[in-house]
Amino acid sequence: MKLRLFPQERAGLRILSAMAQEIVLGVHTLYELLGAPASEFGPLAEQMRQHEAASGNLLVSLLTHMRTSFINPLPREDLFALARFLNEAIEKLAGAAELITLNKLERIPARASDQLEVIARQAELTVEAMGRMDNLEELEDYWIQVLRLAKRAEHTHRVFVSELLRDHKPVAYVRYRDVADQLVNVTRDMRQIATQVGSIIVKES
């Protein structure tokens, strides 16, 4: 099987791994935000914006690297797709933090923590996987695990929305629902990354 690409050129993979790590760090910041009083939201929201900015800077670095490097570890279109999904994931995570801060949403329902747990696991798996994209034989299990986590996230989202509808008045429901939607969309971006990896595995087989 043609599964080993260009191990001598790993800069692009290191950048992808660093972008995934910003998602891990962003999850930790959002965990803190969920447990904080509204008076502490500002600094934590700013910390999340810094994670988002760091991811954006890494995306620019990757684009520069792809333009200037003769040999890339993956086809340019695959590198770009992975980086785009990673950056969109951290943007949505930052969006959840911004919604919580703007609407001063204290006492977020526990289902949000359940979703963050899924995102954290997806991101941790992705950090490791991005660094191993030059040895695709090891990545099929990553693909399967992230897809399973994504299915769990979709179920949790449906339960989350149902509980919000049952337990909250319309205005509160809309505010919490916006956060719930942001979080499930992060898990969908992580699923897109895993799907892209699966596509690369198939193409390089």
Rank of each mutant, 00 (worst) to 15 (best):
D78M: 11
D78K: 12
D78A: 15
D78V: 12
D78R: 08
L79A: 14
L79P: 09
L79M: 15
F80C: 09
F80Q: 15
A81T: 13
A81V: 02
L82G: 01
A83M: 07
A83N: 08
A83P: 10
A83R: 01
R84T: 07
F85P: 02
L86W: 02
L86N: 05
N87F: 01
N87Y: 00
N87V: 00
N87W: 00
N87G: 06
E88Y: 07
E88Q: 02
E88L: 03
A89L: 00
I90P: 03
I90G: 10
I90C: 00
I90E: 01
E91N: 13
K92S: 15
K92D: 05
K92P: 07
K92W: 07
K92H: 12
L93W: 03
A94F: 02
A94E: 04
A94S: 09
G95M: 08
G95Y: 04
G95D: 06
G95S: 14
A97C: 08
A97T: 04
E98W: 06
E98A: 12
E98M: 06
L99K: 10
L99Q: 09
L99S: 06
I100M: 03
I100L: 01
I100G: 10
T101W: 03
L102D: 08
L102G: 04
L102S: 09
L102C: 02
N103Q: 12
N103L: 11
N103Y: 13
K104N: 11
K104Y: 08
L105K: 02
L105D: 11
L105R: 04
E106D: 14
E106I: 12
R107L: 06
R107C: 05
I108E: 03
I108R: 11
P109V: 08
P109F: 09
R111E: 04
R111M: 04
R111H: 10
R111K: 13
R111F: 12
A112K: 07
A112D: 12
A112I: 01
S113R: 15
S113P: 06
S113V: 15
S113A: 15
D114M: 11
D114C: 12
D114V: 06
